[in-house]
Amino acid sequence: MNTVKPMAVVTGASSGIGRELARRFADEGFDLLVCAEDEGLAAVAEELRGRGAAVREVRVDLATYDGVEKLYAAVSATRRPVAAAALNAGIGQGGAFLDTDLADEARVIDLNIASTVHLAKRLLPGMVELAEGRMLITSSVAAAVPGSHQAVYNASKAFLQSFAQGLRDELKDSGVTVTSLLPGPTDTNFFHRADMADTRLGRMRKDDPAQVAGEAFEAMMRGREKVVAGSVRTKVQGVANKVLPDRLKAAAHRRLAEPHPDGADRPAH
């Protein structure tokens, strides 16, 4: 790796928002250490090299303790400071809580919450020691919405939002900033993996992941507290979430997240 360039770590980098964040880092002159669990990571890493970045790819399952430790060992092996880290890996699980498998819900917690806390614990001391660094934590506009038919996922994003804000305050005099990213429904494979393709939420028009990542990158590099990124609709939702009562938000979420297979062939707007 070219030690003149700053280095960024991006998790969940094989697709969606993570891939777009990695592309933006490469285009802005960063070298990269990218992580995901699937085989698509190799192609992304090769593309990033074509954009001029030196890239180390780490294929591990961050939903496990050992996976996070292996990622951090790879970071340490570069012997380079981490200038920026986008903790973006995450999954969802749709369905009524009493109908979903415990193992599936536990994996949401392990990846979205446990791995983010674990990796932040490993990366932040080095940043603080150098008194500089940027960290992005991917939450969601769902963080402010009680998640009927997506209860564990929405709760995990509420945790991440609170976690990011707490870290930001603790580090306010350290030279290190923490920014939370709150995207809305984005055009990724999230809804298919979460078994939500037959829901109104799964079928509605999605935001462009490149736009979301671009706004996230700018907010992180400017050291902003948080960014509701994406379309005007998503930004309006972010404002509405501040004023609507929880019972109304939960009821609205149910209508969007419960299955509607009979209407699966009709687009939602």
Rank of each mutant, 00 (worst) to 15 (best):
K5Q: 15
P6H: 09
M7Y: 12
A13M: 12
G16C: 04
G16V: 01
G18D: 13
R19I: 00
R23V: 10
R24C: 06
D27G: 10
G29C: 03
L32T: 12
V34C: 10
A36K: 03
L41N: 02
L41F: 04
A42W: 12
A45G: 04
E46R: 14
E46M: 06
G52Q: 11
G52N: 14
G52D: 14
A54H: 15
A54S: 15
V55R: 14
R56N: 01
Y65I: 13
D66R: 14
E69G: 05
K70I: 08
Y72S: 14
S76W: 03
R79V: 06
G90W: 14
I91G: 09
G92T: 09
G92Y: 13
F97K: 03
L102R: 15
D104I: 02
A106N: 11
R107F: 04
V108L: 02
I109E: 01
D110R: 15
D110W: 08
A114Y: 13
T116M: 00
H118T: 14
L119P: 03
L119V: 10
R122C: 08
L123S: 06
L124P: 00
L124T: 10
G126P: 07
M127Y: 09
V128L: 07
A131D: 07
R134C: 05
R134V: 04
T138E: 00
V141I: 15
V141H: 04
A142V: 02
A144I: 04
V145W: 01
H149Q: 08
H149Y: 12
Q150T: 06
A151V: 00
V152H: 02
N154Q: 01
A155W: 07
A155K: 08
K157V: 05
F159W: 06
S162H: 03
F163H: 05
E170P: 11
E170C: 03
E170Y: 05
K172E: 15
K172T: 15
T177S: 10
V178L: 02
L182K: 05
P183W: 10
T186K: 05
F190M: 05
F190H: 04
F191G: 13
D195S: 15
M196R: 02
L201P: 01
G202L: 04
D207F: 12
D207M: 15
D208Y: 06
P209H: 12
Q211Y: 07
Q211R: 15
V212R: 12
G214F: 01
G214P: 05
F217D: 09
M220D: 12
M220Q: 06
M220Y: 10
R222N: 09
R222I: 00
G223M: 03
V227D: 06
S231Q: 07
V232I: 15
R233P: 08
V236P: 02
V236C: 07
Q237R: 13
V239D: 03
V239S: 02
N241H: 01
N241F: 03
K242H: 05
K242I: 07
V243C: 01
L244T: 00
L244D: 05
P245C: 09
P245T: 06
D246N: 06
L248A: 08
L248K: 04
K249F: 08
A250N: 08
A251I: 09
A252D: 13
R255I: 03
P261E: 03
D262L: 11
P267D: 12
